[in-house]
Simulated assay, not measured.
Amino acid sequence: MTDTANDGALVLLSGGQDSTTCLAWALDRFPRVETLGFDYGQRHRVELDRRPALRRGLAALNPAWAARLGEDHSLALDALGALSDTALTRDTEIAMREDGLPNTFVPGRNLLFLTFAAALAYRRGLRHLVGGMCETDFSGYPDCRDDTIKALQVALNLGMDRRFVLHTPLMWIDKAETWRLARRLGGDPLVRLVVEETHTCYRGERGAMHPWGHGCGTCPACELRAAGWRGFVAEGVEEAPRGG
């Protein structure tokens, strides 16, 4: 537990690999950690169904984590889904757009997520907001950039007269290092939990069980997760989680 653990944190928990790793990261640092999920009509909303099992699994891994894990919250953002004509909110083929961004980009999503999270944190007396935004493996999403997050932190602090701190522990690491981070935080049991219980597939398919987890295996999210897994285990067989 580091000296940053002075007050509580709110973690944006989608039910995917990145947010689950971020929740473990927060539980390792802060004395009280609550979670928040958003239902915006996402095509892969099966990820939301994974959240209770992930919270239970993380609590079971470490008694200290169990003591720190607080309430779970869920917010419906139907308006975001209604406004968004994307491959994450419509049953359409995943492809690149003419502007170079993938059509999985939901405009304003992370800006809204963090704004609503700050409003909830304000009410709950939580100072730290933790999200899985990443500029290394981010498909070009502009609302995942470090500059965007820093600018939003300034705006939230000014607009709410608070001193929130926005944490993005995955910002400068790739998927292989995200797997390594999970291993450092919770050993093989946490890696197994991420493999077996999280959901990342954009198509919302639990599908077959691959070495890296469930999913269609062909969408950009599955390909990125699988490539990260290969980089993780390529360091040696000792890096792969043992069965059991």
Rank of each mutant, 00 (worst) to 15 (best):
T178C: 11
F116I: 02
A155I: 09
T115N: 07
D99N: 15
R123H: 12
K150Y: 02
F164H: 03
N110L: 01
L190S: 01
F164K: 07
V194S: 01
G159T: 05
N110K: 04
S139W: 11
R97D: 11
L170Y: 11
K150E: 12
P102H: 02
D174H: 08
L158W: 13
P142T: 05
L152H: 08
A155V: 15
W179L: 03
S139V: 15
L101H: 04
P107E: 05
M171V: 12
G125I: 11
R192H: 07
R124H: 09
C144R: 00
R109A: 06
P102F: 11
L129K: 04
D99F: 07
L170K: 01
L185T: 12
L193P: 04
E177D: 13
R127L: 08
Y122L: 10
G108F: 05
T198R: 02
W179I: 08
E197T: 14
L126T: 07
G131Y: 02
R180Q: 13
Q153T: 12
P189D: 13
T148M: 15
G125W: 08
N110S: 10
R109C: 03
K175F: 11
L166P: 06
R184D: 14
A182G: 15
L101A: 06
P102R: 04
V154I: 14
H128A: 12
A151K: 12
D174I: 10
R109V: 00
R123I: 10
R124D: 03
G140K: 07
Q153L: 11
L114D: 01
P142M: 08
P142D: 09
D99Q: 06
R192F: 13
L114N: 02
G100A: 11
V195F: 07
M171P: 05
A117V: 00
V195P: 00
L129P: 04
V130G: 04
D147Q: 11
M160C: 12
G159Q: 03
M171L: 12
H167A: 09
L166A: 05
N157R: 12
C134Q: 08
G108A: 09
L129T: 00
R163P: 04
L101T: 09
F105A: 05
T115W: 00
N103S: 15
L170F: 13
D188W: 05
N103F: 12
T148Y: 03
V106F: 05
D188F: 08
L190Q: 00
S139G: 09
C144Q: 02
W179V: 05
L190W: 00
Y122K: 07
Y122I: 01
P169R: 03
G100D: 13
R192I: 03
M171I: 07
V195R: 15
A121I: 00
T198L: 03
L170R: 10
W179A: 03
P102N: 14
R163I: 12
G187E: 06
E98L: 10
D161P: 02
R180F: 01
N103H: 13
L166C: 13
E135D: 15
A119V: 05
A117H: 02
S139E: 15
A176S: 13
N103T: 06
L193C: 10
G100N: 09
Y141N: 14
D143N: 11
T148F: 14
